[in-house]
Computed example of a mutant assay.
Amino acid sequence: MTLARWLGLFVIIASLYILWQIRMVAFLFLAAVVIATTLNRLVRRFKQSHVKRTYAILLSISIILALSGILIALVLVRFINQFDQLLSLIRLSISQLQYWSYEFQSRIPDGMMTNLPSLASFTQQLQTAVSWIITSIYLFLSNSLTLILNILLVFVLSIMLLANPQRYRQGLVYIFPAFYRQRADEILSKCEVRLVHYVAEITLSMVFVGVTSTIGLLVLKVPLPVVNGLLAGLSAFIPYVGAIASAIPPILLALLDEPWKAGAVLFLYFIIQQVEGSFVTSLVMQHQVDLLPATTLALLTAFGIFFGPLGLLLGLPILVIAQTWLEEAVVHDILDPWKSQ
């Protein structure tokens, strides 16, 4: 290799190393980009009504802050107050499940046990998984100062991006060669549209799953229906993984109350996910974000392993942007015009 190629390789490795070291800041900046992009669409709607951009920005931020305040006052305060009770009941449910598994295995002949999976091992693994989740939640919430600072940083970055988005966009476009800048600007516009559709779709999904889960758990008389419904709604932000994780607490609580309710809760959550995926978002959203389920689940798992909770939360917006660039820049601009000689 020539000296220039060695220098190029060194620059790439150094850039990847620096990016890895500042990955948390990069994720927070990406969160600000998603928020600013969504709010910018609302600002444009206000500007169409002949409202000045400054007032449109203030009005948009005021609406978001007001909705967030109502959510915190009506729902999150109650959730925090009942969260410890939920964790205690989950631990009690796992203990009861272990007791039932030992009772069941004691009534089975020893010759048959070799061909059956160990229920005790399953309950121990379930307890380990639940303990890990609880510990992670406590660690995440215990460092409240860092959490507050991160939220403030995202809020300030969002306002700065929203104040003059065109300037930041032009700076990004100038990174590309001159002949490709117009095309890059078109791709950024498509990324913006898809991000807005993603935020609208995921918001609708969270509201639908949270409300229907709460109503269903109230009908089944499962303990703490509001807390479990809120968990289901918030977990809908993370596709597939969130749906599975949010179903575990109400199933365990239903099992502690009356065993038949556990199957009913599982069926309820299954129906809610099917209705949400097949009818709700497809009827309301005209342009859905089309991501392959298996690929999405695998990549979200990888984001969660390498980048933690922020990787899970922001994994899907990253996939939306990456898929748009791959489709437009790689497939349409490079592969499609490529003809064999």
Rank of each mutant, 00 (worst) to 15 (best):
A200C: 15
K190R: 11
V275C: 08
S246R: 01
L16Y: 04
L152C: 11
L255E: 06
G69Q: 02
A32F: 05
H287E: 15
V320G: 09
V226I: 15
S235D: 03
Q182N: 12
L30I: 12
M285Y: 04
L71A: 14
I57A: 04
W20Q: 07
F83H: 08
L162N: 02
G315V: 12
K261F: 09
T37M: 00
L314A: 07
L217P: 00
L3R: 12
L139I: 06
G315R: 03
F83E: 06
I22E: 01
F303H: 10
L152H: 06
L312A: 09
S62W: 09
G311D: 05
G111V: 05
Q82S: 14
I272D: 01
V207T: 10
A73C: 03
L326G: 11
L39T: 07
G304Q: 03
L172K: 02
A129L: 07
A26Q: 06
Y17K: 07
V226N: 02
Q274A: 15
S246M: 04
I151Y: 15
T2G: 12
S118C: 04
I70N: 00
Q124D: 12
L234W: 05
L234R: 01
V241T: 07
L313G: 06
S235K: 06
K339V: 12
K221R: 14
A36K: 00
E201N: 08
M1H: 13
